[in-house]
């Protein structure tokens, strides 16, 4: 077959591939609300004959499960996109919000906001997410400047050490604030730090949507620039990429995504590491496809993890962060030890 037609076929496949990821996401979205300790009769839940307040099935479905699943989708999608962008900007496939300490930076920001007694939004401004965003941005700035060599590379060992250092440092700060806070705040902090998707309502969900939308759209706009940066900073410059600008935009937007969802769901680990890897194996490394595909796949992945968390030892629900960490730990070891080309 002629090589040019092979390239063209790849481009035509773009929409098709993305469509499959979207269908998978829709399927997850449709099926998982029906899975759970309490059986839901869908016909009854959707029936308009029974008043909503008396309709137990509808209450469980629409007030408990659906918002929780949407939060899982937003969180999983946002963390996966952020992970893909961090991996690309640092040209290192072990980078992710969690391993870089960006999640704990966001956690510190959020904990400071909570301990100051700020409620989730003050006069329409989502204060906790903004504090988490600033924490995430501080963390990535720290790790970036600690681990960059003179030639603009990010050696795995240095990067991971910087990430571990940032993690310990932010965790210590969180503990310090936690230790000083009073009982109610302390409870709020602990519950949130465990990483859970069960503390939500539609208002919170709606409030984080714009930030996720903005972060994702802007990252999509610089997709080709990000591809080039992942092949080397100086090569990218020579191809006409404004590297400093793109790095700034990329780090800020990935931090915005991380901070926003960490503020609501707590620091859920390893999603941003695992998902970009799996998706890259399926669709290749081009961020124009990798980012939206990771968004859908990450959303489905966290919904499924959370479904396991809700049901595995029902009636007890375990925080979803435990499930992702149990999957992510071994995956991380595999990434470290796998044979390199």
């Amino acid at each position: 077959m002629h090589s040019m037609s092979i390239i063209l076929m790849d481009r035509k496949r773009y929409a098709g591939t993305l469509g499959l990821f979207f269908l998978f996401f829709l399927a997850t979205l449709a099926i998982t609300p029906l899975i759970g300790l309490t059986h839901i009769d869908l016909g009854k839940a959707l029936s308009s004959d029974i008043a909503f307040s008396d309709n137990v099935d509808a209450n469980i479905l629409f007030l408990v499960r659906v918002p929780r699943i949407f939060l899982a989708a937003l969180t999983g999608g946002a963390l996966s996109v952020a992970g893909a962008v961090f991996q690309c900007l640092l040209r290192n496939d072990l980078a992710a919000p969690f391993t870089l300490g960006v999640s704990s930076g966001a956690a510190l920001g959020a904990v400071i906001a909570i301990s100051l007694g700020l409620s989730y939004t003050v006069m329409g401004i989502p204060t906790v997410p903004i504090a988490a965003f600033l924490g995430a941005l501080g963390a990535i700035t720290l790790v970036f400047s600690l681990s960059r060599t003179r030639t603009g590379e990010f050696p795995t060992t240095v990067l991971l050490l910087a990430g571990v250092t940032a993690n310990f440092f932010f965790a210590a700060m969180v503990m310090f604030i936690h230790y000083l806070s009073d009982f109610t705040q302390s409870f709020r902090i602990v519950r949130w730090l465990m990483g859970g998707l069960d503390i939500t309502d539609y208002k919170t969900l709606l409030s984080i949507c714009p930030m996720i939308f903005i972060g994702f759209s802007i990252l999509m706009l610089i997709g080709r620039d990000l591809n080039l940066i992942s092949t080397g900073v100086q090569s990218a410059m020579s191809r006409g990429v404004d590297v400093i600008k793109v790095q700034k935009i990329g780090f800020v937007m990935a931090s915005l995504l991380t901070g926003t969802v960490v503020a609501v769901s707590g620091p859920i680990g390893f999603v941003g590491l695992i998902v970009p890897h799996i998706v890259r194996l399926l669709v290749g490394p081009d961020l124009r496809l990798l980012l939206p595909a990771s968004m859908f796949f990450g959303a489905s992945f966290l919904i499924l993890c959370d479904t396991v968390a809700r049901t595995i030892i029902a009636p007890t629900e375990i925080p979803v962060g435990i499930i992702t960490a149990m999957l992510g730990g071994p995956f991380f070891v595999w990434l470290l030890k796998r044979p390199k080309q």
Binding site: I7, D10, Q87, L228, S230, T231, R239, P285
Partner: peptide
């Protein structure tokens, strides 16, 4: 760092 194809690398020249 990532498994780009030869054709993808060459096309990046059009940036």
């Amino acid at each position: 760092a990532f498994p780009f194809k030869v054709s993808e690398i060459v096309l990046m020249g059009r940036h």
